[in-house]
């Protein structure tokens, strides 16, 4: 399973013409491909099993969950979801999360675009150190900054607002955005810049009209990663909010511990947190591979 092949499938169309010569090799390659498919399917099943279990549980009543294991809900119910959508403390959690994630995405892109351009085009004093400093923030554990964060945002009167969480998440999404965008921008030949300047474009006009459309896919990928890292983070989001901007992730932990273990509700809330991510990854599926290819995550 380990070294079975899929890159050999690259050759499928090419090797058809040479079939008589390479028929044995081709058969071997096809077997390897099949083994690869089998291995991949196995991996995907194992990967999806815990998620399937969560989805399965979210459609069960608590009595059914506790009474035994079954692969399908015998007593199919939507109560758990109904509860979430009818209770504002629950569904506002989703609204809050989506609000601060969106804000974070917009802020990150707005500040990272010019900076990434500067890093990809110019040499300036301290550029390398600046770049390293940015990256070190991507790596810094949020737990280190937890205490002062709370006080910092309280002292500027932003505690328990969406913008506070969005700004706090910038500490890792902005470096990430700069890193990814710089990779995409370096792929654009600088002759394009020079031609545009000769044609009389000013920098802002060139940047918005010509350059940004050129790296559209890069921007999409960057937005995806900003979304991803801001959406999954809990520690900072929980520390910086109390009521008005509380993220869904925090509401889940609180409500569950307060009312005993309501497994069905917990599972339903969990399922609903997975959906936005799947939606986003669907939109960028064709570009994501390229984003990863730069290795800048």
């Amino acid at each position: 399973m380990t070294h079975s092949t899929s890159p050999m499938t690259h050759n499928k169309s090419g090797s058809k013409e040479q079939a008589p010569v390479h028929s044995r090799a081709e058969r071997k390659a096809r077997n390897a491909t099949l083994r690869g498919r089998f291995g991949l399917t196995l991996y995907l099943i194992l990967l999806l099993l815990p998620i399937y279990w969560l989805v399965n549980m979210s459609f069960k009543t608590n009595t059914e969950i506790l009474s035994g294991l079954s692969f399908f809900p015998a007593d199919f119910t939507l109560d758990n979801y109904a509860k979430i959508f009818s209770d504002s403390t629950w569904y506002m959690g989703y609204v809050n999360s989506i609000l601060y994630v969106t804000m974070n995405m917009v802020i990150s892109l707005l500040v990272a675009l010019p900076a990434a351009y500067a890093f990809s085009r110019y040499k300036f004093i301290g550029d390398k150190h600046m770049f390293f400093w940015l990256l070190s923030n991507r790596m810094a554990p949020p737990a280190v900054f937890l205490l002062p964060f709370f006080q910092l945002y309280s002292s500027v009167g932003l505690f328990d607002t969406h913008i506070a969480v969005a700004l706090a998440h910038c500490i890792f999404t902005v470096p990430l955005a700069v890193w990814i965008l710089e990779g995409f921008m370096s792929g654009v030949p600088r002759e394009i810049d020079e031609t545009a300047y000769i044609d009389g474009y000013s920098f802002p006009k060139f940047f918005v009209r010509i350059f940004i459309p050129l790296i559209r896919s890069g921007i999409g990928v960057t937005a995806f990663f900003c979304f991803m890292f801001s959406w999954v983070e809990l520690l900072l989001a929980r520390t910086l909010t109390s009521v008005d901007a509380k993220p869904i992730a925090a509401i889940m932990t609180r409500t569950v511990s307060a009312s005993g273990m309501d497994w069905g509700l917990l599972a339903a809330a969990g399922v609903l947190t997975i959906l936005p991510g799947m939606l986003v990854v669907y939109f960028v599926r064709n570009h994501v591979a390229k984003g990863f290819a730069l290795g800048r995550v």
Binding site: I51, W231, V232, A249, T253, T273, I274, G277, M278, V281
Partner: peptide
Amino acid sequence: LVAIPLLIPWNV
């Protein structure tokens, strides 16, 4: 499908 686990909030 492979990307799904990456997009789930960590507490979930």
